[in-house]
Design a protein around this nucleic acid. Structure first.
Length: 510
RNA sequence: GGCCCAUUCGUCUAUCGGCUAGGACGCAAGAUUUUCAUUCUUGAAAGAGCAGUUCGAUUCUGCUAUGGGCUACCA
């Protein structure tokens, strides 16, 4: 039986999507595309207390930025909607009733306070076969009383009735077979009357069934509740069409203990969010990969390899290559520590390989912000400047410090370099250099280099000292790309002007 | 505490019983360069421990240890 592949990414809009969630979305997407399947985005907003405005838009924008395309969802539409759980109340209500009618679930009136008291009273208290008959629920109260309480407006929840002592089997595509005894599963709440919404567990199963989801690909934190889900499918009579489970290993903190969490954010010195996030309540701003100068391709590539490998030495992947090669067989079972240094390296590689025009386009806004007369420099000039330094940066933003001297002449000069390279006779030699440059008609790198180097040899000047003094006047320090590539770009007049300024302003310590 | 999952260089990982344990990031050294980078070369660096199965275990099994997750009217 070949079933059509339909997968879903189902975040809850309780804040910005974090990088672990992004990876889950990515794996879902890769698998869907590889199998010619459908990628669904479902918004799981069944917790009315934790709703955060803007979170849903944030999720959409993040996925768009990364190139993770959604086939069915709130914005995209589809034949299995609505794709937002808060709009599916009628549907859930129907299945709650079905479970109740079939005796697979029951109504419970215990208040949160009562439950808390029980937990305080009894160690390892669990609402299950061993305790449910001592609680306030439809199994102990009698039909009339239950009806009366409901009519009186008493808040209640619906709990699944777990039958103890059964071996529940979960077959996971990454972990293999996991068997759990049903006695350790509690009678989980499926529905709460307070907000007329189901909990994750029920909504999840109902939606996956109705949306004909074929593979549930989610984080490992869901593995412990997978047996409950198996039992729920069974209770609803859907066991034969139950989707395959795939539990992905978690992303762990780079150092210390625990999984990578939203709160790690800027605390650890790197973004954990794809996009910058402005918290509407606290006003706090959390940095994002996009705003930090990451290329989405680099983020995708990096994330793909955190928990999956191709089985070969290949490390650089386009989205299409990931789609072609992805497989659960090569997914790790072990949680992956988030290695930010490697992420930086990926970004460096992607920037280095990017064509100059595109990079310049990304850099332009940063240039505008930092250089007053940025508008004076045409796209061609910026493109060439960027092209000369792109292998030296990890982030787009770093292009500014690397290219600054292409746009602004130095006003200060590095002390150490002066001490090392600016000798007593340097001003005189620089004066000669100006004359040599005056005589050059073609400032093309190779040509200028040949002439200047010829002059240095002819006078038996010290190559290192002359060239570095030259660089000092033009760049302000002994750093940067090939000298004559720089002078070709800034031009003869600017070069000479900078040497003159250097002669006037650089004071040798000797 | 209980339940579940995991365990190869510092980190991400390859190996599907034959290993001189491979690659990448990071680190170190060297080469190249008029500078700083890039680049290139080289190097250091790992099978958690103990049993068992086997001619042979990193690979299979068990136990221990360690790490992780879950244990809500959150997802």
């Amino acid at each position: 039986m070949t079933q059509k592949v339909r997968v879903r990414f189902a975040p809850s809009p309780t804040g910005p999507l974090h990088i672990g969630g992004v990876r889950t979305a990515l794996y879902n997407y890769l698998f869907a595309r590889q199998k010619g399947g459908t990628m669904i985005l479902r918004i799981e907003d069944t917790d009315s207390n934790r709703f955060v405005p803007g979170a849903e838009e944030y999720i959409n924008e993040s996925l768009r930025w990364l190139g993770i395309e959604i086939d069915e969802g709130v914005a995209e539409g589809g034949n299995y909607g609505p794709y937002k759980q808060s709009e599916r109340r009628d549907i859930y209500r129907r299945y709650v009733k079905q479970l109740l009618d079939d005796g697979k679930a029951y109504i419970a009136f215990d208040t949160p306070e009562e439950l808390e008291a029980k937990r305080a009273e009894i160690a390892n208290f669990q609402y299950d076969a061993s305790t449910r008959l001592s609680m306030r629920n439809s199994l102990t109260l009698g039909a009339d009383e239950v009806e009366r309480l409901i009519a009186a407006g008493e808040k209640y929840v619906v709990r699944i009735l777990i039958e103890p002592g059964r071996e529940v089997v979960v077959d996971d595509l990454i972990r293999g077979r996991v068997v759990i005894n049903s006695s350790v599963i509690d009678d989980k709440v499926l529905y709460k009357s307070a907000d007329d919404l189901p909990t994750y567990h029920l909504a999840n199963i109902v939606d996956d069934h109705l949306m004909e989801v074929s593979h549930v690909i989610r984080g490992e934190e869901w593995l412990p509740s997978a047996p409950l889900h198996v039992l729920l499918y069974e209770a609803l009579g859907w066991s034969d069409t139950r989707p395959q489970f795939v539990h992905l290993p978690l992303l762990l903190k780079p150092t210390g203990n625990g999984k990578l969490s939203k709160r790690d954010g800027d605390k650890l010195g790197f973004p954990v969010f794809p996009l910058e996030w402005h918290d509407p309540k606290s006003g706090d701003i959390s940095s994002g990969y996009r705003e930090s100068g990451y290329l989405p391709e680099a983020v995708v590539n990096f994330l793909a390899l955190l928990g999956w490998n191709p089985g070969t030495d290949q490390e650089m992947f386009t989205m299409q290559e990931l789609i072609d090669q992805f497989s659960f067989e090569h997914c790790s079972k072990k949680g992956a520590r988030f290695d930010y240094e490697k992420g930086k390296w990926f970004n460096h590689e992607y920037i280095s390989r990017m064509d100059d025009e595109s990079l310049a386009r990304l850099f332009r806004p940063i240039l505008e912000k930092n250089v007053d007369n940025a508008a004076d420099f045409g796209d061609d000039y910026v493109t060439r400047a960027v092209g000369l330094v792109k292998t030296r940066v990890n982030f787009v933003g770093e292009l500014m410090e690397q290219t600054r001297f292409f746009f602004v002449a130095p006003t200060t000069y590095n002390e150490k370099d002066i001490k090392k390279r600016w000798k007593e006779d340097t001003p005189r030699i620089m004066g000669e250099l100006i004359e040599v440059l005056e005589g050059i008609d073609d400032m093309t790198s190779a040509n200028a280099e040949a002439i200047v180097l010829g002059w240095i040899k002819e006078h038996e000047y010290h190559m290192g000292n002359v060239m570095n003094a030259f660089r000092l006047t033009v760049v302000g320090e002994c750093k940067g790309p090939h000298m004559f590539d720089i002078t070709e770009l800034i031009g003869k007049q600017e070069t000479i002007a900078r040497i003159k300024r250097g002669i006037d302003n650089i004071v040798s310590p000797q």
